[in-house]
Design a protein around this nucleic acid. Structure first.
Length: 589
DNA sequence: GCCGTTTTCGGCCCGACTGTTTTCAGTCG
């Protein structure tokens, strides 16, 4: 069992314990251990063999025993017992914004409600408001929350679907008779929310893929089974579709299952009667015939006279014609990224030290890293005051003196306060290498108020980047009242860089906004906002957003070498004009 | 539940916001 699966199991235990009404600190212990496992560099299985599970931070005797059972048997009697005791629908109800465990318990105890459908009915029938401590506003908030969930009904964020897909791929690939396994569908196209995890399995000879996956410990139920298809639902509620194809039909099947339908339609229109006739290319006159006879996607596109169209573009948004006319950029790739400009450390609410973050960044081939903690008003996140910030700047300077091939930038993620002021004084902001400004409070302000705050920040001389510009949390919180067009105009006018926050909880800006930003000539930075070393890998999600927004390396700030990055920052344009930074001004000794 | 130590149990993230209630509880970041 992998760390990720262990983490999921512990998180589920934590949720179920909370719903049972367990003490908050105990609940938190499970969630903390789940987080530790998710971000563990080493496989827990290895630790277990050496009897060192308790070396995992947040894991003591008790949790070590539960983890050991999971590792040895793939199951947990404790978890199975909890699942018996707590109706599974209650965990779904926790996902309703504004509903916590206490309210879910109250609603369950008084009204016997165990599913989201029953919850909605009760709210519509005005039964919730009659419960002690509940009122009409709570009831309306629940209905609003349910609406928001429904928008993503049965949809899973990419941040959950992608790791699950990769995990299942690895496990299926190890089974006999399997020649190849790949993800397909909207997951492969990188949509921010996907309906299910589509897996395509190439097989040769007999195989037990279906049998093994049907009794996989992650799997709650088999939804449907056919000769070449298995449909499952995991305990986390994710639908998984496994398709089996003979090895030699893999490429056409992969193409077809990746879609999207709209893209395949676009391809069809292109080959049949578009400006290019299939006959003139010596091709069969319909896509099906072409599709039946190619051994790779590259070959298919090439035979259609097209450059390869990456899965992220296959949405039927004009990509076929754009490809034909050479209007698609060379897609952004992980190798293009030279550094991360937004990370946290244990100075504020991060997990790791500056040095640990730096080492992790270097291990990923980066050339620079900007340390950007929260500012003082964000007390929950242990935001830094001036003294702490100066101390951190000192430490960064020390680290920079030791580093040969890498530069740490001293920055801040300063709060844009509800009145539009920044949370730190100008002279402090001026003395840093880079300043990100973000909104973390006053989410319910009007568009006028929000835009006034953002405008003030963007017009501020020392604000280089706006962090997570719309504030959305995928499937959990709508964006605050941002006028996107105005935001882009202001960014272009003031030379402010906008962030594509790569955290899979946010993906903010989103792909459409990113594409519009490019049209406005706005520079974007893909940042992870990582709070620990492992989350530096979230960069992949941000790259997916950029690719889906038809962006290339030239559109992204942190594909540049450090000099290029510094030159693009508003602060330095003022100081240096259009030229290069004078050597003594560069943030390295 | 874990952790640290004061080695046997008390502290663990805290303040803003909202809604309900009229002094506080629950949720969230």
């Amino acid at each position: 069992m992998t760390n990720l699966e262990l983490s999921w199991a512990l998180a589920e235990m934590g949720d179920l314990l909370e719903l049972k009404g367990e003490e908050a600190f105990k609940v938190r212990a499970y969630h903390r251990a789940a987080r530790a496992l998710e971000h563990l560099e080493e496989e827990a299985a290895g630790l277990h063999v050496r009897g060192e599970l308790e070396r995992i931070p947040g894991v003591g005797k008790n949790l070590a025993k539960k983890i050991a059972e999971l590792l040895e048997t793939g199951r947990s009697t404790f978890l199975e017992q909890l699942r018996q005791e707590v109706p599974p629908g209650l965990r779904d109800m926790l996902a309703v914004p504004g509903l916590g465990a206490k309210s879910v318990r109250l609603i369950h105890q008084h009204l016997g409600i165990t599913t989201l459908e029953e919850l909605e009915r009760a709210a519509r029938e005005r039964k919730i408001r009659r419960l002690p401590g509940m009122g009409s506003k709570t009831e309306l908030a629940i209905l609003r929350g349910l609406d928001m969930l429904k928008e993503h009904r049965d949809r899973v964020p990419l941040g959950i679907a992608r790791p699950l897909g990769r995990l299942f791929c690895r496990q299926i690939a190890a089974l006999p008779g399997v020649t190849r396994v790949e993800v397909a569908g909207s997951l492969r196209r990188g949509r921010p929310m996907v309906g299910d995890v589509d897996l395509l399995v190439g097989v040769k000879g007999p195989t037990e893929v279906k049998e093994v996956m049907a009794r996989h410990p992650q799997v709650k139920e088999v939804l449907q089974e056919e000769a070449n298809r298995l449909s499952l639902r995991t305990w986390a509620g994710v639908k998984v579709e496994i398709f089996l194809v003979p090895d030699d039909k893999f490429a056409p099947a992969w193409m077809y299952l990746t879609g999207s339908r709209a893209h395949l339609e676009e391809l069809k229109r292109f080959t049949a009667g578009g400006r290019l006739s299939p006959e003139s290319l010596g091709l069969p006159s319909n896509l099906e015939e072409v599709a039946a006879s190619f051994s790779s996607e590259e070959e298919l596109y090439s035979r259609l006279g097209l450059p390869y169209i990456i899965p992220e573009w296959r949405e039927g948004r004009g990509e076929v014609l754009a490809a034909r006319e050479g209007r698609l950029p060379a897609p952004l790739s992980p190798e293009d990224i030279k550094g991360d400009l937004h990370v946290h450390t244990c100075y504020s609410d991060g997990l790791h030290t500056i040095r640990e973050m730096v080492e992790a960044a270097r291990a990923r081939g980066y050339r620079y890293l900007a340390i950007t903690e929260h500012s003082r008003s964000l007390v929950v996140a242990r935001g830094l005051n001036v003294e702490q910030l100066l101390a951190q700047r000192e430490e960064i300077a020390r680290i920079n003196r030791e580093l040969e091939d890498f530069v740490v930038l001293s920055g801040i993620e300063v709060d844009i306060l509800p009145d539009g002021c920044l949370d730190l004084e100008d002279d402090i902001l001026a003395s840093l290498d880079i300043v990100i400004a973000s909104i973390h409070s006053g989410f319910n302000q009007t568009e006028e108020q929000i835009m006034a705050r953002l405008e003030a920040a963007m017009r501020h001389p020392w604000v280089d980047i706006i962090g997570h510009p719309t504030g959305r949390m995928l499937g959990r919180r709508p964006p605050y009242a941002v006028n996107l067009e105005r935001l882009l105009e202001l960014a272009a006018e003031t030379g402010t860089i906008l962030e594509i926050n790569a955290s899979p909880d946010r993906l903010d800006l989103d792909e459409d906004a990113a594409r519009r930003a490019k049209e406005h000539g706005v520079i974007l930075a893909v940042n992870t906002d990582a709070h620990d070393t492992a989350r530096l890998d979230d960069m992949g999600y941000g790259i997916t957003v950029a690719r889906r927004g038809w962006l290339g390396a030239q559109d992204i700030l942190n594909t540049r070498e450090l000099d290029g990055v510094l030159k693009a920052l508003k602060r330095n344009k003022r100081k240096w004009g259009q030229g290069s930074p004078p050597r003594e001004e560069r943030p390295r000794p």
